[in-house]
Design a protein around this nucleic acid. Structure first.
Length: 629
RNA sequence: GGCGGUGUAGCUCAGUGGUAAGAGCAGCGGCUUCAUAAGCCGUGUGUCGUAGGUUCAAAUCCCACCACCGCUACCA
């Protein structure tokens, strides 16, 4: 039975198709920080992370690199382990979906669901057009024929296994509404509820081996492997012992937090709860979706290649300050900006000036004027005021952390640090020491003890640097970490090193080269392959918006020899007026398709990066129909 | 197209019916010198996106509009 003090939190398991980047790092550091705070308050804590290793993309990446999928995974997992090591991540377990225990457990769960009728095999009829290599619904067919090839498609049957997700739709909507903390922040909850207004279909959880072999084989049909998401989500259960070590499992489940990025909300907030319901397990208490880091104004995500490697940041600035920055600057669930400039401002202002400098001045004053740490003799009003806020601070910090309000928790600590600086100005111990050494001692003890307390509260965020500082401060081990008065009067103290040296903005630390795009080993094509693509110039004759579609424009174009109609997803980037009369480049021999009921006989070429799209054209004017080679 | 969100000081944001609208950063002026050229004090005439409405009273509630964003549909 899970007791109230057991705290289980997870990150997603990261797909090994990609190198670790700041998105992965943020989630993982957040989890680490939360785990450390909960351990510090005495909670029985389990922090799970890992990697997701099955699926199509892994198989493809492996085959293009000429290695087995397992070899590919074995290579990639090292990058994640090393990254977390370097970022000071203290996880309790690192799961790989290729771990045998996970594979076994997933198969047991599948068998159980299958036996209880939660999974069924469905043979869906399909009107399959060989020319198009795709299925058509009856509605899409024109007079029973493929609209492209005007040929009657074959009716073929394909089998797959489906999880009865749809039957849990009403239950899920109800559950989400009755448990306001289940999906956070609220905007994500609304999105999920919006998603659930449309009918939910059953979830296809198998892939025929003929198409994809890299996955967990279904226990009840060796011709299939498990859909990668189904396999991956179950890690949250298998890693803590489900279904073979129920005692361990029940100690931790349900999870207190699944931390995720906002890109995987549907899988976690729709698929996962229904799977758990079908298994018969309670749902995690909270699924928290955080935002994305914008790097120099550009979106950072898995699919984009403008990767800023967390390890590079750490090499330049140090782990602790990077962790601090990431935790301090991203507000609950919102997107945040990262740039060197923003980082340096935050670092200099809070870590160097407010905190680090305070440590230096207090310790220096003690070393210079006293042989040992002085006593706090007669606390006056200023001392009492500091002590009052020092006693409140651990409580408010832990409260905020328990609500995932990390930014505000850190703000509270740094505000307290500022108040210590102010206290120093008010009491001026460097003057007092000349007139009243006892009172100067009281002031310095108060400042040092306040500093120690602030440092202790910052330790989960900056474990390395803070440990370094705390190891120098002599304490009375009998007294509790968060209690006032732990610093030991009469003990000697070493001079402390400069913890966070100020970064001089004029000396730009651009030692790091702009991160080169990952070199993917892409297969090369021959000139003959290229020749298969018929590219020609074309003149745009007419353009109109496709009704009820945001992105679509219908164009008629002149190819010199003929006129054609194409549909293109560029309405958000070009207005019809901008296009008429322009020369564009099209793929002339592309298989036609029907988009929104409109036939499209070709594709225009456009360059797209970071959300910006521009059509390709020729530098000098040229007749339509010119061949491009 | 549908659903939802955001728009407050140069920047990042807090503030959801009621004293003259706030914080941090940046800027400017001063004090101080124990300290990492750090610290402290002082300093903001901000159309609270625009235009209406409800109210004794609105940044805060309602309507419309504008801008941006998210999810979703359609987008190879």
């Amino acid at each position: 039975m899970k007791n109230s003090d057991s705290f289980f939190l997870t990150t997603p398991i990261y797909y090994v198709n990609d190198m670790p980047h700041i998105g992965h790092a943020y989630t993982t550091i957040l989890a680490d920080v939360l785990a450390r705070y909960h351990r510090a308050r005495g909670a029985d804590t389990f922090f799970l992370t890992g990697v997701d290793e099955h699926g199509q993309k892994v198989q493809q990446a492996a085959s293009s690199a000429g290695i087995t999928p397992q070899e590919h995974c074995d290579r990639m997992v090292v990058h994640f382990r090393e990254a977390w090591e370097k970022l000071g991540i203290n996880y309790d377990f690192f799961i790989r979906t290729t771990d045998q225990f996970h594979i076994d457990a997933v198969r047991q769960v599948l068998q159980n669901l299958y036996d209880r009728g939660e999974i069924y095999q469905h043979e869906y009829g399909g009107y399959y057009c060989v020319g198009c290599e795709r299925f058509y619904t009856q509605k899409e067919l024109v007079d029973g024929k493929c609209p492209q090839h005007l040929k009657a498609p074959d009716f073929i049957k394909e089998k797959n296994y489906f999880f009865r997700m749809s039957k849990y739709q009403d239950w899920l909507v109800d559950y989400i509404q009755k448990n306001p903390d289940f999906i956070q922040p609220e905007s994500r909850k609304n999105e999920v509820l919006g998603f659930l207004k449309n009918p939910l279909s059953d979830l296809c959880i198998s892939r025929p081996k003929a198409r994809l072999s890299w996955g967990i084989e279904l226990p009840f049909d060796a011709e299939y492997v498990t859909y990668v998401w189904f396999d991956a989500l179950l890690n949250y259960l298998t890693a803590i012992g489900y279904p073979n070590d129920l005692k361990r499992f029940e100690h931790w489940w349900p999870a207190n937090y699944h931390l995720i990025g906002k890109d995987i909300v549907t899988t976690h907030c729709v698929y996962w709860p229904t799977i758990l319901k079908a298994i018969g397990l309670p749902l995690p208490k909270t699924i928290f979706a955080h935002g994305w880091w914008m790097i120099d104004e550009t979106k950072m995500s898995k699919s984009l290649k403008n990767i800023v490697k967390p390890l590079d940041l750490v090499d330049v600035y140090g782990v602790d300050s990077v962790r601090y920055f990431l935790m301090r600057d991203m507000m609950l669930g919102q997107d945040a900006n990262f740039s060197e400039e923003i980082f340096i401002k935050r670092y200099n202002s809070e870590l160097a000036n407010d905190f680090g400098n305070l440590a230096s001045r207090v310790v220096t004053l003690i070393k210079r004027n006293f042989t040992a740490i002085p006593e706090a003799a007669q606390p006056g009003n200023d001392e009492i005021e500091i002590q009052v806020s020092a006693r409140k601070l651990p409580q408010t910090t832990h409260q905020l952390i328990s609500e995932l309000r990390v930014t505000e928790a850190l703000e509270g600590i740094i505000t307290f640090v500022r108040s210590i600086n102010k206290y120093m100005e008010v009491r001026q111990p460097w003057q007092l020491v000349k007139t009243d050494k006892t009172e100067a001692g009281t002031v310095l003890y108060t400042a040092l003890e306040s500093l120690r307390l602030a440092a202790t509260l910052l330790e989960p965020v900056m474990p390395t640097k803070i440990k370094e500082l705390l190891s120098i401060l002599p304490v009375d081990e009998q007294k509790q970490e968060f209690a006032w008065g732990r610093i030991k009067s009469g003990a000697t103290i070493e001079q402390i090193p400069i913890l966070f040296p100020r970064i001089d903005k004029s000396v730009k630390t651009s030692a790091e080269p702009p991160s080169a795009p990952l070199k993917k080993e892409e297969p090369l094509i021959t000139i003959d392959d290229f020749a298969k693509v018929k590219l020609t110039t074309a003149t745009v004759l007419t353009v109109e918006k496709v009704p009820d579609a945001t992105k679509l424009l219908k164009l008629t174009i002149d190819l010199g020899t003929e006129k054609r109609q194409i549909v293109a997803g560029i309405a958000e980037h070009y207005s019809p007026e901008q296009l008429i009369g322009k020369t564009i480049i099209v793929v002339a021999n592309l298989q036609p398709v029907t988009i929104r009921g409109i036939k499209s006989e070709g594709m225009l070429l456009a360059a797209k990066k970071d959300g910006k799209l521009t059509l390709l054209s020729s530098i000098d004017s040229i007749e339509p129909g010119a061949k491009i080679s």
